[in-house]
């Protein structure tokens, strides 16, 4: 019988080295053995993703590697998440996320979504090529605390400004995150956004920092 620690290491290693089958197997074993699913997520999958973030920041990993790590992570999350008791893993907060209308690229959006998923947020993924009004409607419907928008092309990012204006007019307390290749800090500031990630990878790094803080918080509880 594998110990909790051993399985957490298997999950962590599987995420870092994008071994999806290993992650799935270790996740299923953890469920079968009755280990706390939230601990397996946080100290296995999320801990692995933290290392992936370091590797990305040190330019040892690039987006293809991170995408494969993400596949491995999701393989485990699909098995473990249903076993997190509501009192432990009830949604921390809610986020509406999507790629802006005119943009069919969604790599960055999906990586950021993964961070929210791991962190236990309720994610409302609108997909890609999302009409501007849809972000506003979904935020109002869900009362999400965060709206995250991505644009991969200069030619589409202008729509984000309109969405920010529409949302802030209705609900100034919503935090807006922007990301994507053409989005610079200047653009985020000009548009009135609250957060910004300059690339999919940068979004990963920022998201991983968020997970690290969450893991520290879980340990203190």
């Amino acid at each position: 019988m594998a110990s909790k620690k051993e399985l957490q290491e298997a999950l962590k290693d599987g995420v870092i080295n994008y071994k999806e089958d290993q992650v799935k197997e270790a996740s299923q074993t953890a469920v079968d053995e009755g280990y706390p699913a939230l601990e397996m997520i946080m100290d296995g999958l999320a801990a692995g993703m933290e290392v992936v973030g370091d590797l990305y920041e040190r330019h040892e990993y690039f987006v293809p590697e991170v995408l494969m790590c993400a596949d491995a992570l999701y393989g485990g999350l699909a098995i473990l998440r249903p076993h997190v008791p509501k009192k432990d893993g009830g949604a921390i907060a809610q986020v509406v996320i999507g790629s802006i209308q005119g943009d069919v690229h969604d790599i960055g959006k999906n990586l950021v979504k993964m961070m929210f998923d791991v962190a236990g947020w309720q994610v409302y993924d609108l997909g890609r090529d999302v009409p501007l009004e849809k972000f506003v409607e979904e935020q109002l419907r869900t009362d999400a605390e965060v709206v995250a928008m991505s644009a991969m092309m200069t030619t589409t990012m202008l729509g984000m400004r309109k969405v920010i204006k529409m949302i802030k007019e209705k609900n100034p307390n919503v935090a807006i995150m922007l990301g994507g290749a053409p989005v610079t800090q200047d653009v985020a500031k000009l548009f009135g956004a609250d957060g910004y990630a300059e690339s999919a990878g940068n979004a990963v790094a920022e998201g991983i920092k968020m997970i690290s803080r969450l893991r520290e918080y879980e340990k203190k509880k």
Partner: peptide
């Protein structure tokens, strides 16, 4: 391709 013919915004064609 999608030309966004009904959109009032400037949107370049995409492959949905």
């Amino acid at each position: 391709i999608s030309l966004y013919e009904d959109s009032a915004d400037i949107l370049y064609p995409t492959i949905p």
